[in-house]
């Protein structure tokens, strides 16, 4: 009898077992990126830059050339690569601490230069790998290991809205905030990631997708509770929205 493969993982994932916790969204987002790389047929010309954070091993999970940048500097490293090899596809995968705290300057300036790069920005409102400290995107009142009384604006300032900040920059070609909490959200997130890659491939400018994500471990919730908390709280502070779309359909 002839057998046919009816379903499998994307080619652009290496098959290495993920190191992520149950209920964490990194796995879903990794898969979506790999599917897009497969569908666009760019696996052989893609280079990825992993960050410092829970996704520090991401360069091992994707079956493409890759490196891991110093904390916050993924977009500087990616800029160097892309300027050296303008016909390759270069993407960064970064968390909120990496992209929106220590790497804010690199993020803003790569976007402002309109670097032909793609960034997937995982916003889960907490520092995951170091054990649940306050992130720049932590919500007001949210308890973390360094905001044990809840984040207070008077002491800690306000949640940083990266997509809103970058939306004013002319160099940005695609910018959307999505989530992957429901099957519908996942389908929409995949479309956004595709466009953020096309912004680069079509040489239009910088593409970034902010993905509101769960961290059940550090939020102290079950995966199901974390999904609910994200939809009820994070989407209020960080509305899901297409901010910039110069890619078209």
């Amino acid at each position: 009898m002839e057998t046919k493969i009816a379903f499998g993982g994307p080619k652009s994932l290496s098959g290495k077992e993920f190191t992520y916790c149950p209920g964490c969204h990194h796995g879903i987002v990794h898969r979506l990126i790999a599917e897009i790389i497969d569908e666009l047929g760019i696996q052989g010309k893609t280079i990825m830059v992993a960050p410092v954070g829970c996704s520090v091993f991401a360069y091992e999970f994707f079956d493409v050339d890759g490196t891991v940048a110093p904390h916050g500097r993924a977009l500087a490293v990616a800029t160097g690569m892309k300027r050296a090899l303008p016909d390759r596809v270069v993407f960064t995968y970064q968390g909120d601490g990496d992209l929106a705290a220590i790497g804010t300057a690199e993020t803003v300036h790569a976007a402002n230069r309109g670097e032909k790069l793609t960034t997937i920005f995982i916003n889960n409102a907490v520092y995951g790998m170091t054990g649940g400290q306050m992130a720049p995107t932590t919500l007001l009142g949210q308890k973390t290991t360094t905001t044990p009384y809840g984040r207070r604006a008077k002491n800690d300032g306000y949640p940083v809205h990266i997509s809103e900040m970058l939306s004013t920059m002319v160099g940005v070609a695609y910018l959307e905030r999505v989530t992957v909490s429901t099957p519908q959200d996942i389908r929409n997130a995949k479309k956004a990631i595709r466009k953020a890659f096309l912004a680069q491939i079509k040489n239009i400018g910088f593409g970034l997708v902010e993905v509101l994500s769960t961290c059940p471990t550090n939020w102290g919730m079950s995966p199901v509770e974390a999904q609910r908390w994200l939809l009820e709280n994070m989407t209020k502070e960080f509305p899901l929205k297409v901010f910039v779309d110069k890619v078209g359909d």
């Binding site: 500087a76 800029t79 160097g80 690569m81 690199e106």
Partner: peptide, 25 residues
Amino acid sequence: TFLQTESEVATVNMVYGAASTGKRV
């Protein structure tokens, strides 16, 4: 390619990225 960067911190990491492609930088 010449690029004026936003800081020396960004500079050294751009050098890292460019050097990782094997080109002289």
